[in-house]
């Protein structure tokens, strides 16, 4: 089923299509309840203790929840745009500016223990940190410009 942008809503911290949501509620409810009630009726014929029959019926009800969820997942695609590999290394200095403004830092890369420093080197981040620390030497780290913060700064704060 196709989604429509004019029906998108934010529910429980993610985006859904209103019509798909109604569909999911009906399918999820019907499949789980159907499984529970059917199992209770069928198991009641074989298990003498009605309490145990009802407990096993709950197991089938929970399996029904998962099956209902799987049907919904098949019918309704996620309303997410997943973009791959978009780490924007050009803006590293901007990210670092936001990071230093947010946390502050005492001491530079040179003062790090060798293990941490070689980790930074392996990640190819050592240079970026060194450049940033050189450009913002002597307690200047807090004085970042709006341009430096840019997109990364806003995302950092938002999280």
């Amino acid at each position: 089923m196709t989604m429509r942008n004019d029906r998108l809503l934010e529910v429980w911290n993610d985006t859904v299509d209103g019509h798909h949501l109604i569909g999911s509620l009906i399918i999820g409810g019907a499949v789980s309840l159907g499984a529970f009630q059917t199992a209770e009726w069928l198991l009641g014929m074989f298990i003498d203790d009605p309490r145990m029959a009802r407990t096993y019926a709950m197991l089938f009800g929970i399996i029904g929840c998962v099956v209902g969820g799987a049907i919904c997942a098949y019918l309704f695609r996620p309303k997410r745009e997943v973009v791959e590999d978009t780490v924007d290394t050009e803006n590293l200095q901007g990210v670092l500016a936001a990071l230093y403004a947010d946390y502050g830092s005492r001491g530079g890369v040179e003062d790090l223990p060798e293990a941490v420093r070689s980790e930074l080197r392996e990640l190819e981040l050592e240079e970026a940190f060194l450049v940033y620390e050189r450009d913002h030497a002597q307690g200047d780290a807090v004085a970042v410009t709006e341009r430096d913060l840019g997109h990364a700064g806003r995302e950092g704060v938002q999280s």
């Binding site: 859904v16 999911s24 409810g29 009802r54 709950m58 929840c65 969820g69 919904c72 997942a73 996620p78």
Partner: peptide
């Protein structure tokens, strides 16, 4: 592959089953 609607559907199913049970 797993839409938020599907997750909500699963949990609503859980509410119904556990509550009624």
């Amino acid at each position: 592959n797993i839409s938020h609607e599907a997750i909500i559907g699963t949990f609503v199913g859980l509410i119904l089953v556990i509550g009624l049970w």
